[in-house]
Design a protein around this nucleic acid. Sequence first.
DNA 1: GTAAAAGCAAGAGCACTGCTCTCTTTTGTT
DNA 2: AACAAAAGAGAGCAGTGCTCTTGCTTTTAC
Lengths: 259, 259
Amino acid sequence: MQHPNPERAALAGATPARAQTARERARDQITAEIVAAARIRLAESGPGELSLRAVARDVGMVSSAVYRYFASRDELLTALLVLAYDDLGSAAERADAAVADRADVIGRWLAALRAIRGWALAHPGDYALLYGSPVPGYAAPQATIEPAVRVIVVILSIVTEAHALGRIATPTAPAGPVTAAAEMASVAGAVAFVRARGLVGDEVPTELVIRTLMAWTTVFGTVSFELFGHLVGSVTDLDVYFDVVASRLAADLGFSALR
Amino acid sequence: MQHPNPERAALAGATPARAQTARERARDQITAEIVAAARIRLAESGPGELSLRAVARDVGMVSSAVYRYFASRDELLTALLVLAYDDLGSAAERADAAVADRADVIGRWLAALRAIRGWALAHPGDYALLYGSPVPGYAAPQATIEPAVRVIVVILSIVTEAHALGRIATPTAPAGPVTAAAEMASVAGAVAFVRARGLVGDEVPTELVIRTLMAWTTVFGTVSFELFGHLVGSVTDLDVYFDVVASRLAADLGFSALR
DNA sequence: GTAAAAGCAAGAGCACTGCTCTCTTTTGTT
DNA sequence: AACAAAAGAGAGCAGTGCTCTTGCTTTTAC
């Protein structure tokens, strides 16, 4: 007999058209319990160390019972992945939204980036799950890409809004080994993404998209280096260093200072 | 009984003063065999999946025998770590050295960065071991930091030599949320490293060190994003995109074009 | 030259893992 | 109340890292 595929409803919160039966409610509740227990365990160890049996013990089940809810350990990890992406995304969104002066794009930029780092430091296990080396055989399911995109949308929104507000001096592309046409083609996907999202500033230049993608990459790299211990000898004050990086990134994007 | 700590000699190549006995030679050879087998297994799966028992089977031993050579799985991984760091470092060094015109700093920059990415694509398992999420309990031993530094030294050398040659227009620090003094203090370790290494250009400005550190972070982030599949939707031509990133980084560092 | 010491390989075994079965119990629905 | 579907429990398989004991060989010491 095939195992059902139940965690969809519980995770996406997509209530089916029909009213839930009592059994469905119980199922969702236990599913949530399992995920919550897994999350706690993940907080204090990496994704590779997450033991399905240990999670089962935490919720007072035998390991085989968990397989009624998740067909495999990878499926449990996928559920945690979605949750973590959403958590990170909403943290960034909240930080951006908390800046009262919407025209203070540098302030919003700094707030969003600090929120990302703060979340990563507070949830290192989740961060490793999201951005650490993936399990070789593991391919992220379609359901994960939508929540994964939230944090990037926050960053992109700030940049595109700054552009629409005229608060960005779009940097020009430097002379390089690649033709301009090839450069544009290489990031066509990202540009199409911006357009499809209907973000403010439909005419956002390709160079700005490239710069934003690079900035996001640098943020990820900086946080990863800090979390994975690659900065121990070089950087003494990690808090300050992150702000330093964030301000350089803003400058490279062409943000014009407000004050 | 305590296990001896044998792999030191075999890995560091530090031949003791006394001539090697037959047993010592055999030990070094078998140690090398184990490492080689582990390396092959690592190439086609992540570090977390590397099974000590499997490599034992590969070399025709029983698993307990391997523990004569490596006290734990982590120690085996450390040996692989040192090897991989050295491999990556020498790849970058060779790429830099292969540029005939030593004053063509942009060409050297591009060559070194391309070599780093090329090595990562050719050895994804090793790359994940070096720069992927570490095992939570694992702290890198002292012996690993020297080889880890090689690839960074290549990058730093190009930048400092370019500075000494006057081929870099040091960018000025943008106004930011941090005082200049705090900025300098935060990267004091990295600056001290440059001075201690006796790299060309002892008076290399702090801002340049920050920029180089950031550039290295971006390179790492770009390669990681590519390898871990975080660019699938956004970037269509990864080869071109990497060159785009590399040229932007060179521009941000203030490299003045040669031609 | 022989005896003691140290090093090496093998095997059994422990506690753990992911996962698959079968069997029994619970539980919501009709 | 009766029934079927779902859920839980348990045993079991193949694998893991690691330890300990048992023989055997090589090196060292007397």
